[in-house]
């Protein structure tokens, strides 16, 4: 069987990519995609840990299901907010959203 840490490495790599994307991308839609990548990394973690560490109860699986359910809701709200700002400002570039500052 494939050892646990291979899964964890894939998840950690995906998570790092997601974090990099959030910090480096300028387009807000791309930032939301990067956040989704982070959440998917968490899901790989949860399911792998469940399978290898505690397969006797379903906590990890239940957790993963809740994570992607919530992720869907979160993405929906995020895209709605992006649409509302695009209507007002005609831009989705994070750097140009700068009305509020001191």
């Amino acid at each position: 069987m494939i050892p646990l840490h291979w899964y964890l490495l894939v998840a950690a790599g995906m998570f790092a990519l997601g974090v990099y994307g959030v910090l480096a991308r300028r387009n807000m839609v791309a930032i939301i995609m990067s956040i989704e990548l982070m959440l998917n990394a968490v899901n790989i973690n949860l399911v792998a840990f469940w399978r290898y560490m505690a397969p006797e109860n379903l906590n990890g699986q239940a957790f993963a299901i809740f994570v992607f359910t919530v992720a869907a809701a979160e993405a929906a709200v995020g895209l709605a907010l992006i649409i509302s700002i695009y209507r007002a400002r005609e831009t989705v570039v994070a750097k140009e959203i700068d009305m509020l500052k001191w």
């Binding site: 995020g78 700002i85 509020l100």
Partner: peptide, 14 residues
Amino acid sequence: SAEAGIKYYLFGAF
């Protein structure tokens, strides 16, 4: 308000 929403969202989701 739209800007506050999106800023809160991006920070919060991250």
